[in-house]
Write a protein that binds this DNA or RNA. Structure first.
Length: 153
DNA sequence: GCCAACGTTGGC
DNA sequence: GCCAACGTTGGC
């Protein structure tokens, strides 16, 4: 069972600086069953990379941790909200998510281009063609390698 | 339960 | 803005 993860977010919507400011946040709005299932596997204290997507350049910018295990995603019940799901109910919630907390911001971003150049990372879903999961597992080896890179000033 | 159409993701 | 990839939807 993976104990490390990667969380994608568009920084215009919610960035590492937003997480640093707020301390914790509900990782709501994920509407993909595979990503939901991964969040249900997460345990309190699990660490994850914080990844900025849909900007130039995209990349890993820091570390967050699971501060609450999976619970129903509150945004699915907000009527007319962006993430409202009329097919879900409080009695039988469809979407689940964790809460994440700020751990650290790396002194530099590790851009996807740099990750792609490392053969040991070739099997990361992030770098694989067509893999668009917004929540992904990260192996222990990948984790250690990327943390080392990120902490290089 | 097949599968075409459609919508979304996300790097480039 | 383009477009490949792929998940979801809905007609049949």
């Amino acid at each position: 069972m993976p104990r490390h993860w990667l969380f994608k977010t568009e920084p215009e919507t919610f960035s590492i600086d937003d997480l640093a400011r707020d301390g914790t946040t509900e990782w709501s709005g994920v509407r993909n069953f595979q990503a939901r299932n991964l969040m249900r596997e997460m345990k309190l204290g699990d660490l994850g990379f914080f990844y900025h997507s849909s900007i130039s350049p995209p990349g890993v910018v820091g570390i967050c941790k699971v501060v609450a295990e999976a619970h129903p995603d509150s945004s699915q019940f907000v009527k007319k909200g962006e993430y409202w799901d009329p097919s879900s109910s409080r009695a039988n919630p469809k979407w689940w998510c964790v809460d994440v907390g700020f751990v650290e911001k790396f002194p530099r971003m590790i851009a996807i281009e740099e990750l792609r150049a490392i053969p040991d990372l070739a099997y990361m879903p992030l770098l694989r063609r067509g893999q668009r999961l917004s929540v992904q597992p990260v192996s222990d080896q990948e984790w250690a390698l990327i943390v080392r890179l990120g902490r290089e000033a």
